[in-house]
């Protein structure tokens, strides 16, 4: 699916259409931000941050890359694959995602070790997975996940389908059929999204404009309405 997205994007990236590889938790909000951007048209190819990064590394025709953590985009910068410094554009926080109505009565991280609660997490290669591992370690809780999913959206999907009882996902991922159990203040690593221009872009000018726009007040307003933290 992400690959297909890139191919479609590549096919349609005419004179001034930007292709943005974005972390999967940004799927909807990036479309909205793209609509608000008055420069070029924007096509969003969403996948796990690690997949987006791999695509940049393998030379996919992306103009802008947005990851859900600093480490992933820093590795790209260190590899000389980006033009300019990555910019922090928004934040997010982890919640426990459970089925609507919370049938298993999950109240906090401690419940994730219960025998009767099937837990799925994002794989550690995915920022959400890294955040989840960090959060659990900080709380001193050892969870045996049933699966390490390839993206944070896959975590939510498994809970929504009822295959898993709980998972750790971003607050902004909560949608129909699932509910969030908030973590107490101070618990949970906060996520930060970073954007940068891909070095190999064929539209360096408009790509730069778009990355600047992402940290503008207008873009921040869009992020806020979608539930993202500043």
């Amino acid at each position: 699916m992400p690959i297909l997205g890139v191919i479609l994007a590549a096919c349609s990236s005419g004179t001034d259409t930007l292709t943005v590889g974005a972390a999967s938790s940004l799927t909807e909000v990036m479309d909205a931000v793209g609509d608000a951007f008055e420069g070029s048209g924007v096509i969003v190819s969403a996948a796990g941050s690690q997949v987006v990064a791999a695509q940049v590394r393998e030379g996919a025709p992306l103009d802008v890359v947005v990851t859900a953590d600093e480490a992933t985009i820093d590795r790209l910068a260190a590899g000389g694959l980006l033009a300019g410094e990555p910019v922090r554009i928004a934040g997010n926080r982890l919640v426990i995602v459970v089925a609507a109505g919370n049938p298993k009565g999950v109240a906090g991280l401690a419940d994730l070790v219960r025998e009767d609660v099937t837990v799925v997490l994002a794989a550690s290669q995915v920022p959400a997975g890294a955040y989840a591992a960090e959060t659990l370690a900080a709380a001193g809780i050892v969870v045996s996940p049933a699966s390490l999913e390839p993206s944070v959206r896959a975590v939510v999907a498994k809970v929504r389908l009822g295959e898993a009882d709980a998972g750790l996902a971003y607050a902004t991922d909560i949608s129909a059929d699932v509910a969030a159990v908030e973590l107490p203040p101070g618990v949970g690593t906060d996520a930060s999204y970073f954007a940068a221009v891909v070095g190999a872009t064929s539209h360096p000018e408009s790509a730069r404009q778009f990355v600047d726009f992402l940290s503008s007040d207008r873009a921040r307003a869009v992020f806020r309405t979608h539930g993202f933290a500043p």
Partner: peptide
């Protein structure tokens, strides 16, 4: 799903 040692086969391992 994907869990090393239980359901993570070679193709899944490659993917991650």
């Amino acid at each position: 799903g994907n869990l090393p040692g239980r359901t993570q086969t070679l193709p899944l391992a490659i993917f991650f």
